[in-house]
Simulated assay, not measured.
Amino acid sequence: MDRIIVADDHPLFRAALVSALAHAAPGARIDETPSLAGAREALSRGPIDLLLLDLRLSDSDGFVGLAGVRADFPAVPVVVVSASEDGETIARALSFGASGFIPKSATLETMVEALSAIRAGEIWAPANLAAGASDGIEARIASLTPSQLRILVGLQQGRLNKQIAFDLGVTEATIKAHLTGMFRKLGVQTRTQAVIAARALSLPL
């Protein structure tokens, strides 16, 4: 039996996704959660066949949640669902490793079509909207290790090395070592340049 997680903080839209899954994945066990923390907790109990993830949750806004899940659970296909459905957002989601993108404006029929295609191993996005990413920074961020990604988020939040070290339960020397590897992957040389690169984790306004 397939096990699928639906992570969305809007009960009505969760219900719509569950209804679509009833057609696309009949008999699947579906876990519903309104938060990224709930999704990660369910993922830790794996195995999971599919995660449907809203880009805007109470504890995650933008692509941080998607990038973190892809880093920590690379074998789990992730479908992004979002009210932000412009070409740039869709392209970023796919660049960060999403297996598909379902706009919240989609009809039930379209949701079923998308979920069926994704479960068959296809990459699905709305036609004519998945424009190419502009500079490839999303792919470079997606290549970071889970620790490097957490450090990048810390830099984006303006936290010092010692604060990030405390958050991760490691030494400052370890943080500096991770920064060296992270800078190399991102193609940057300074913290400021890394923070600028990290803007790719935010949703367009």
Rank of each mutant, 00 (worst) to 15 (best):
R40G: 04
S44F: 01
R45Y: 03
A22D: 11
M182A: 12
E122K: 08
I141T: 14
G65T: 03
D61E: 14
G27K: 09
I196N: 07
S84A: 13
A127I: 10
F183M: 12
I137V: 15
D31N: 06
F13E: 12
L21V: 02
S116N: 04
T190V: 06
L21D: 09
F73K: 09
E88W: 02
W124I: 04
R150K: 15
S134R: 15
M182E: 12
R119D: 13
I175V: 13
A130T: 06
D59I: 02
F183A: 12
V78N: 00
F73A: 15
A131F: 08
M111T: 08
H23K: 08
D9K: 00
P146N: 13
A25V: 02
P34M: 03
I164N: 05
T192Q: 13
A165W: 03
G68Q: 13
G187W: 05
V64N: 07
M182Q: 11
S105D: 12
L155M: 14
V80A: 06
S202M: 08
I196K: 07
I30N: 07
L201Y: 00
A16L: 06
T171I: 05
M111D: 10
A93D: 10
L205C: 04
A93C: 04
Q157K: 11
A127S: 09
D54K: 00
A37N: 12
Q189G: 13
V195I: 14
D167W: 02
L203F: 00
S147E: 15
L51I: 07
G62R: 05
T110P: 00
G62P: 02
L203D: 01
I164T: 08
I102P: 06
E113R: 03
I196E: 13
G158I: 08
D135M: 11
G87Q: 05
A71D: 07
S202C: 04
F63A: 06
A71P: 05
A130N: 07
T192P: 05
A98N: 06
R92C: 11
E41S: 09
D135W: 09
V80S: 04
E88Q: 08
G181T: 12
Q157I: 00
I48F: 01
T107F: 06
A127P: 09
I164F: 02
L52I: 14
L144P: 15
G121R: 08
G169Q: 02
A120Q: 05
P26H: 12
E172T: 10
I102M: 07
D59M: 02
S19Q: 11
Q156P: 05
L203Q: 01
I90C: 07
P26N: 11
S84H: 13
A20D: 03
E122N: 06
L186E: 14
P146K: 11
Q156G: 14
S60W: 00
S58E: 15
V78T: 00
N128S: 12
L108G: 10
S99P: 10
A7G: 05
A42N: 03
A125S: 14
L149V: 12
S82Y: 00
P47N: 07
V195Q: 12
G136F: 09
A25D: 03
I137W: 14
A177P: 02
A83E: 05
T89L: 04
A127V: 13
L66N: 07
E41T: 05
D8H: 10
G38V: 01
L179P: 03
H23M: 10
R184T: 11
L53F: 02
L12Q: 14
A139M: 14
G65L: 07
L53D: 01
A139C: 13
L66Q: 11
I5Y: 05
F96S: 14
Q193E: 15
